[in-house]
Amino acid sequence: MNVFRLAGDMTHLSSILVLLLKIHTIKSCAGISLKTQELYALVFITRYLDIFDRFTSIYNFLMKLIFLGSSLSIVWYMRRHKAVHRSYDKDQDTFRYQFIVLPCLLLALVINHKLTFKEVMWTFSLYLEAVAILPQLVLLQRTRNIDNLTGQYVFLLGAYRALYLLNWVYRYFTEPGFVRWITWIAGLVQTLLYADFFYYYILSWKNNVKLELPA
């Protein structure tokens, strides 16, 4: 464990807590893409298939439970909770995510570390996580006034993977033989997808104006 990875995990956790806070307290998911939330739930399910048969540490185990539990409860809230579901803008959240799920699955079948079910599922979860934010970014472009919590949520989500990139650089230089091309490239693509959001988010924060993404 290193400081970049711990900061990355804490940033990831806080992004989920910000979203849960928004949905649970103001009972609204306005501006949040259910598609992205469902993709994240799928990412965690396919990534943590080995939660019971591969024990790394208490920390890993607990964080996996938290990520699984929170992502599934967010999907539940947005689908089942009356008030929250009413605030969901399904006419705007129209990204057809089979266009990302299938290619990620095919790619995972072709490029992976080992052609076993669990390894392919794990690789699929990496590729899927890299592009899972797309429905949310598309929705943000369509949402006129992005509220602060939504902006913070997306910012923290992008920042976590950027911190993971630093973690991989650190591990590359401190752990001989630490090479993870699949993880590194997926993580880099994921972070690059946030580039323009980061630009407009920091601009709105500096000029103290409402965050708005150009359509």
Binding site: D9, T56, N60, F67, H113, R180, W181
Partner: peptide
């Protein structure tokens, strides 16, 4: 030997 992948990260 292909890079070992012990999935030690979240």
């Amino acid at each position: 030997q292909p890079e070992l992948n012990e999935h030690d990260e979240l």
